[in-house]
Design a protein around this nucleic acid. Structure first.
Lengths: 226, 226, 226, 226
DNA sequence: CATGAATGAGTTTTCATTCAT
DNA sequence: TATGAATGAAAACTCATTCAT
């Protein structure tokens, strides 16, 4: 009952009377974890509050409602994922190397933050437009970034005519989709017999698949990081 | 309140006193639609029953519980999707043509049954292992089928050594993932400015992407149905 | 599906098209069993109908409602218990022998028909006046019968003054209550370590307990607080 | 709507915002009353909540489920009954006086708390093992206590040989059973023509009935079928 | 004589949300 | 800054009961 100095009796990290920013982070951590594991509807504010080590009214005071809390989680994690990818890419490199670096970072981030991944790629898309749009925006950034790389690659290769815009977008969509699908596979392969699939492995598979093309792949050609 | 058609005051198709099989189908139609649009948790049995034009107890009498109803929906729609793809593929054709046919059928089915698509690829995967496993089983069939095609293609092309099993599975995963992702894009592009993306278009994009490889693609090479 | 001669596919004993009396008995057997085990509220008409091997509408056709069905069960089993006790008692015997015979029959009947016992002594008393009254009536018969025996015993023993009516009723109540309690004990002792308690054992315990005391009581001895 | 007293518009005693312990007691009071009168199954949480003057969610927040609430009621009332009996008995008195005191207290408690009596002796025994066991435990305490008294009485009376353990338990069972049965009679006689039966009257009847007989029994006299 | 099809009304239980302090 | 106390609304599920055949 006594609430000594720091490190209270509650579940979370902290004692009482923390600055707002810290408390908010704790709550969102708890929320991401809970939303990611239980799903948006199945996650209860009770559970989130308990996991965060605060009372429910405080959650409402800071985050206002379940919807807003979920949206905040999506935004934070989308930002984090984008940042991770962007940081990994050095714009001076050739397009294929940039893609390689981005993919590796993408897979690594997904593997390191499985709850965030679940929130972004499962939950947010499954629970109504408002949330899905939030993710779609982030995805749009990534697709645009990838499309840019593809066009750059075309220029670098001295492609005769620029590919149609729609083509490029379709390709980028497919590439990003393949990456997301692989990431899910990577995440799910954890703990399975046969060993987990690493981020690099996944990135290599995808680069081969996408860059070289199945046709050539079959003939034995391979893409390689250097 | 009367919804045109013949007879019943209720929402569904029919009047009263239908044989069980018919009622069951009506209920599952309503369920797929509701689950697909609202999500598993947000869908209420009340809404499903009303949409089916029956009372809730009848739904429970025939389908036993929300979980069982959802599972039944997943099974029915997985079966339907598999059947659609299998019917489209003629085993005498070369591997790439088989893949093309299968992809086209896949995209077409997804586009024609968007609620079923949502149930299988959004909801089922998001709401607990039991459901996800049901879809994983279907996906396993498709991945195996695609992996078979890839190996056949390798043999046809006189590939020197057979690609490693893991490679092939990874490629098949990526390909199927790309297809699923494109299907989602196709479904979502409906009603957007710029016009919808057709099944054939999607299939072509993916074949180009996957079969020829981005590298060659950029150089101007293309895969084409004939 | 084919309903051959006798012994249909259903749970109960019979095939179809039985005379009403037989069907009614089957239904009440099923009802006694179900009410006895599950309790009045927890027993469902569905379960009873299935156990009886008929459809629910038939149960309603013959027995009209759950309440009436329960009442019918209570009446039938009360009658049966009374009959069993009455048959066992030979009116020419001395009072103690009559009591002994009655008790033995009572315990034996309770042990042989545990569901009926449960209906009469647990369920009926627990679920509302109308039912409890039904049992109270039967109990009244038994108490009166026992009271008669006690008075006869007093006369036989040449008791100085006849015991007050209220005394006698109180004693009879206590005796019957003790018997019921012992019967419950006997029924519950089944399957316990230490072996079951037989009807005769129970009757002997009670006769010892009560009769020896009654003997003195009849002679005018009393226990008093100080 | 207002029910006199002070404050609250609701049925119960109090206004709003009471400490948890108080609210819990109110809820359990309401539950005992409702369970005792309607029976476990027929009692609805709605009714209990209303009678307690709170909303249903609060009942669930504090007592978790109907089963747990019922169990809590049984425990509380069993404890109360035991305490009442134990408090009444002074261990220095001779065995018969102890028994007299205990019985009187028992009957008085049953008469003063008829709903609690119903919960313990009707409902709990009728609605499934888990509940019945709870009461059986309390009854075990009482039977053991009575058995102890019987043995003490035998010693005090200088009985030649101690009665067998099983005999003693049987006697104690019968005695407790008789008491319970009389208590039911006492409770039911309320409001009947002929006037109510008091706790003392009931205790006297039982003492007369049992003790005089026990006296002889202890001295070795037995009744035998012939 | 007998039943498959169907439902109105009610049950327990949960949850997001808000006061009063 | 923080919380114990409290609830309106809705969800899944069950049941006694009745038509139409």
């Amino acid at each position: 009952m006594a609430t000594g100095a720091s490190g209270g009796a509650r579940g979370g990290t902290g004692g009482r009377r923390m600055p707002r920013a810290v408390r908010e982070r704790q709550m969102m951590d708890a929320a991401v974890r809970t939303f990611g594991r239980r799903g948006y509807r199945a996650a209860s504010m009770d559970e989130i509050a308990e996991l965060a080590g605060v009372s429910k009214p405080l959650v409402y005071l800071y985050l206002h409602s379940k919807e807003e809390l979920f949206t905040a989680c999506i935004r934070r994690e989308a930002e984090a994922l984008l940042t991770a990818v962007e940081r990994a890419v050095e714009p001076e490199l050739p397009a294929d190397r940039q893609l390689w670096a981005g993919l590796t970072a993408f897979f690594a981030h997904a593997a390191e933050h499985p709850d965030a991944w679940s929130v972004l790629h499962r939950q947010a898309r499954t629970h109504g437009e408002p949330f899905a749009l939030e993710v779609a925006a982030m995805r749009g950034h990534i697709v645009a970034f990838v499309a840019g790389l593809l066009e750059a690659a075309a220029r670098e290769a001295g492609s005769p005519g620029p590919p149609g815009e729609r083509d490029v977008e379709g390709l980028a969509q497919a590439l990003v989709g393949a990456a997301e699908s692989l990431a899910a596979w990577v995440n799910e392969s954890e703990g399975e017999s046969g060993g987990a699939v690493s981020a690099k492995e996944a990135a290599a598979t995808l680069m081969n698949f996408a860059w070289v093309g199945l046709g050539d792949l079959i003939k034995g050609e391979r893409w390689s990081p250097r």
